[in-house]
């Protein structure tokens, strides 16, 4: 026997990447804008999506969502109150979503993608593990709530770096938390220069219209030109 080197130069997640590219093609062929929503647990992903999806439906922008959690279908029930089609992915302990789960759930779901404009994937609440798992999304949205502290982006730079849009949530609590808005913006921009930042309160409804407007424009630019 002889010893030799076998050059590979292949990404460890290359299979996930290939499947994600296939799924992205399928979603884009149906004219969808797909959003992968990530944050730590309790940052307000579900509250924001429930509010947004309700408002989007009312303004004539049909939307659906898949939501991932380690256990329970509580979040799918909450999102379903928006009236939009929603399915839960229970990962049974797994700390992130992989694209195979998205594809499998879409295949088993009687959902006509062609009737939709937007598709939300609410990831498992975790700022580390979902970072480099491409789910076939067009945009990755990272949330930071005012209750978490302004330095979260500095503690989890990889996730914030991987995002396309940042949303500061629970702005109605900003004053009570003595939230330093300028510092939060500075920290986000430090690990992701140039990223678009929104501020919202799902409870009061502030900033939601602006965010929807941004998504509608992003989709229009993508498909209408």
């Amino acid at each position: 026997m002889t010893t030799r080197y076998l050059e590979i130069r292949q990404g460890v997640l290359s299979k996930n990447d290939q499947l994600a590219a296939t799924l992205r093609g399928r979603l884009q062929a149906a004219g969808l804008l797909t959003l992968n929503v990530v944050s730590s647990p309790g940052s307000g992903k579900t509250a924001l999506l429930e509010r947004m999806m309700g408002d989007m439906r009312k303004t004539g922008h049909p939307v659906a969502a898949l939501v991932g959690d380690l256990q329970t279908d509580n979040d799918a029930k909450r999102l379903a109150r928006s009236g939009a089609p929603v399915r839960q992915i229970v990962t049974d302990g797994m700390c992130h979503l992989e694209v195979e789960m998205i594809t499998a759930h879409l295949n088993a779901w009687d959902l006509d993608l062609n009737t939709l404009e937007f598709f939300f994937i609410e990831n498992v609440g975790n700022l580390v593990c979902p970072t480099w798992y491409d789910l076939g999304e067009d945009l990755r949205i990272v949330l930071l709530s005012v209750t978490e502290g302004e330095d979260k982006p500095l503690k989890y730079p990889s996730m914030f770096y991987s995002a396309d849009v940042a949303i500061i949530t629970k702005m109605d609590l900003a004053e009570a938390c003595e939230f330093d808005r300028a510092l939060a913006h500075e920290n986000i921009l430090s690990v992701r220069p140039g990223i678009r930042i929104f501020e919202t309160s799902a409870k009061k409804g502030t900033g939601i219209a602006e965010l929807i407007d941004f998504l509608v424009h992003t989709r229009a630019k993508k498909y209408v030109g």
């Binding site: 026997m1 002889t2 010893t3 030799r4 080197y5 076998l6 050059e7 590979i8 130069r9 292949q10 990404g11 460890v12 997640l13 480099w132 770096y161 921009l189 430090s190 992701r192 220069p193 140039g194």
Partner: peptide
């Protein structure tokens, strides 16, 4: 500030040492 990261995201198998 720079958003052009040229290295640092790698999670890549470079090569294997094998017996043939």
């Amino acid at each position: 500030p720079s958003n052009q990261i040229r290295q640092g995201r790698e999670l890549e198998i470079e090569k294997l040492e094998i017996e043939v």
